[in-house]
Every structure is written in C-alpha cells, then in structure tokens.
C-alpha cells in the first residue's frame, strides 16, 4: 500500500481584490470583491514507502501549498489526502508523531535561546526517550558538523547553520515521512552540498519517505529518482527525471569537431540550429527524430574528427516546461 495517497487534491485561496489608490481603499470599506486563486488544482499521485520524490515547479506553482495540506496545516478545499493511513487535516497526535516538515523560509527554533533548548523542548513534546534522543543528537550533529554550535544563541547562527538545526529538530523523533520545502534556499554551495548529502544518506539508511521541493536542479538531480512537476496548481508530469527530458525536449544537441578548420557556418545551417560555432567545432540543436539523419549527413559530408550526441541540459528543459504551462 502506498504511504502517501493524494486524490484530486484542490486548494482555493480567496483573496480580497483591492482597487488602487485612496478611492479604492474607501470603497473597500463598504463592498469587497474577491478573487480566487486555485493554488492546487486537482492533483493526484501516490508515493511508496522509502521513495525520495522531488516537487518541481516555478514560483507560485503550488508546491508549498501541497506540502502544507499533507502536513495538516491547511484544510484542502476538496479532494483527499492520506498519509500513513491518516487524514492529515484531522491532525491526530498519532499522525503528527510520525512525520516532520522543514521549511527553508520559516523557523521553529526559539530565536533568543541556544539551539539545544529548542531541541530539548522538541524531544519532550514528541516524547522521545533520553537515550534515543542522545543518540540521534550525537549522530546528526556529527554528520552535519554543528556539534560545537549547540550552545550558541539561534539568532547568532548563520542561515546554513540554523537550517541544519532545523533539520535536526525535525528528525529527533525519527519520522517516517519527511517533507522538505526548499531546505537549501539561500545557502552557499558547500552548505547545499552538505545538506544534500545528508538527506541522501538519511533516506538510504532509514528508508524514510521524503518529499523535497527545491529550485536548485542540483538538489533534484542528486537526490530524486522521481519528480512530480507542478505548474499553476496542475500536475503536468510524474515520473523519472530523465523522462522529463525525453517528454518535453524535442531536440538533442550534436557537438562535432572537424579535422580541417575551413567549414563555414552557412554550410552547417541547413542541418540544424547552430548554437555555437568556431571554425573547428560546432554545436547543433536538432529535432529528436532527425538526429540520426543529421549525424549521418555530418559524417558523410564533412571530415569529422569527433561527434557527440547529448540531451539538452535539464535546466533548459525545465525552463521550457515552466514556460509551456504559461501559455
């Protein structure tokens, strides 16, 4: 049985429309108009225990909203979500003891106290045994290299350090399901990598089910076998990351280098879209179904030193997917 099941999940926000200017404000005192934002619109998917799934989507796609509904923070407008057999919006204690949510943009640690105080409070709230607590704490502070920072006031920690403690605070009770909303936002490359590796290892070791959102493709590529792409509240793709490329990118890139450097750009133009050109080397963008023919043409008509066929970089494909949704 899947550990997370989502069926036709929908969340509509109703917000007040405001006319510009002082006149609009006065008018707003007496009558109000509302606009509806369909933040999540009829989304369905299932996730099996132990999977690490990435949520992809541009700003405002509805990723955070989905995670919040899975945590029981928001009530769905319609549709159903079940996690570990629980309905999240009921917020049963049994459910809440078994999952965790980390949000890169919000913090749960007490601002004016050392991180360890917040961790300890969490331990007591979740009813974690002393021994288990000590063990998890040692293990994770070691792994994330923040052992020395336990006694430092949270407001004096750097963003990356604080994020690591946020992660630890959420993992003390060894949740079965872990929801990570942009855990690497605003971090430098090293810290990003650090956290990324931690998540990977944690997932492999503990078989925790993880949903991750991130705008950094590096995160997604390194961690997620499976991605769910959301745009404007709709699910537009669900499957392996590689398949995203196959499905959405109609072209491939052919890189050729020539033996003698007297090929002109005009000679290449009929074969495909010339992206890069020097006298000895060129990159051509070619429709998927033409790749074979074009490479043949290249090999027969020119003196080719080396030829290389690649997929378009994932960032570009994703960019295209996002743009496509806008139309």
């Amino acid at each position: 049985m899947p550990i997370i099941e989502v069926e036709h999940l929908t969340k509509i926000y109703r917000t007040q429309k405001r006319l510009p200017g002082l006149g609009g404000a006065v008018q707003g005192l007496f009558n109000r108009e509302y606009t509806e934002v369909r933040a999540v619109d009829d989304v369905s998917f299932t996730i099996e225990e132990g999977e690490l799934v990435g949520f992809l989507g541009p700003n405002g796609a509805g990723k955070t909203t989905t995670l919040k509904m899975l945590s029981g923070i928001l009530y769905p407008t319609s549709g159903k979500a079940r996690v570990m057999g629980f309905t999240p919006s009921e917020r049963k204690n049994d459910y809440r003891r078994q999952f965790a949510l980390v949000m890169g943009q919000k913090n749960q640690l007490w601002w004016d106290l050392p991180a360890q105080e917040s961790l300890y409070l969490n331990k007591e709230i979740y009813g974690v045994e002393d021994e288990a607590y000590q063990k998890v704490l040692d293990e994770m502070t070691e792994l994330l290299q923040v052992k020395k920072l336990l006694g430092i006031m949270v407001r004096e920690l750097s963003l990356g350090e604080r994020m690591k403690f946020e992660l630890i605070a959420s993992l003390l009770h060894r949740p079965r399901v872990l929801l990570l909303d942009e855990p690497t936002i605003g971090l430098d490359v090293v810290a990003q990598k650090n956290i990324r590796e931690f998540i990977k290892e944690y997932n492999q070791k503990t078989k925790t089910t993880i949903i991750l959102t991130s705008h950094y493709m590096n995160d997604i590529q390194a961690l997620c076998d499976r991605v769910v792409v959301i745009n404007h509240g709709h699910k537009i793709f669900d499957g392996r990351l590689d398949d995203v490329v196959e499905k959405f990118s109609q072209s491939k890139l052919i890189t050729v280098s020539f033996k003698n450097g007297n090929i002109s750009k005009d000679q290449l133009a009929p074969l495909g879209n010339v992206l890069e050109y020097t006298q000895v080397k060129a990159v051509l963008k070619v429709p998927r179904d033409q790749v074979k023919k074009t490479s043949n043409d290249l090999l027969t008509n020119f003196e080719v030193d080396d030829i290389n066929i690649e997929e378009v970089p994932i960032e570009e494909v994703i960019e295209m997917v996002f743009k496509e949704g806008d139309q």
């Binding site: 029981g72 204690n93 049994d94 965790a100 949510l101 709230i125």
Partner: peptide, 16 residues
C-alpha cells in the same frame, strides 16, 4: 502564517 510549526507538533496546539 506563523502557526505552521505549532500545528504539526503532536500535542494540543491551543496549549502550545
């Protein structure tokens, strides 16, 4: 919107 973390704790939210 700062209630989020209070809401996911396995304990009475009003108390918290």
């Amino acid at each position: 919107g700062d209630l989020d973390f209070n809401l996911i704790k396995p304990i009475n939210t009003q108390f918290l």
